[in-house]
Amino acid sequence: MVVAQANSTDIGIIANAPLLWVLAAAVFAVILIQSAIYMLAVKRNAQAADMSQAEVNASFRAGGVAAIGPSLAVVLVSVALLPLFGTPPVLVRIGLIGSAATETASASLAAGTMGAELGGEGYTQAVFVVALMAMSLSGAMWQISTLVLTPLLGKGSDALSRVNPALMSIVPAAALLAAFAALTITEIPKSLAHIAAVVASAIVMAICLVLARVLSQAWLREWALGIAIVGGLIAAYAVHHAGFGAA
């Protein structure tokens, strides 16, 4: 039994329970096992794709190197989120399976239904567990539909886009844009420091993307979110300590 109190805001005490570490380690192990099996499958059957062993190894290496930047960016975000969710939940949800943006937004929405906001006064252990439950169940739905849809898509992959190509090209983009626009604008009325974080992060991202294009530096695009987050936090730090922070 873990010592827990509904009104306590000490998330770490329950979020770092030993069994959760075991579960997180098991998820990592499953992913490594999958990668090993898949790599063997590619190596053994590469000829079917007119691919040499050298090309198989080159693909593996290129994928690994390309992942270094994004992985460190995810590490940066994960470390920043540790106080909110504890280590094992951050490893499983933000490090793997989901992404920082999706999971933080989901947790924020879930906390909102309890009348609390992430990291705010009302962010108790109870709110944390409800938020983690909601983001985990949502993540589970993603995987369930992947399990169901992949074989179906394999059989008739372009059937959906044939039925209504315009619908399929408009709905996902509009939904993504609206979700992030609404979530971002929700931060605006909270405090001047929140505005500073949003604006600085947006400006730093825009600069990174422009520089990445002008100078043809692809790594900058991979690193952009990590850099933007640091920029946003620095701006928030300055405004917060100037006395315009969250109440």
Partner: peptide, 13 residues
């Protein structure tokens, strides 16, 4: 306090 707006501004752009 501010990780969420710091992520959202950049991601949206």
């Amino acid at each position: 306090l501010y990780i969420l707006p710091a992520i959202l501004g950049g991601v949206t752009v």
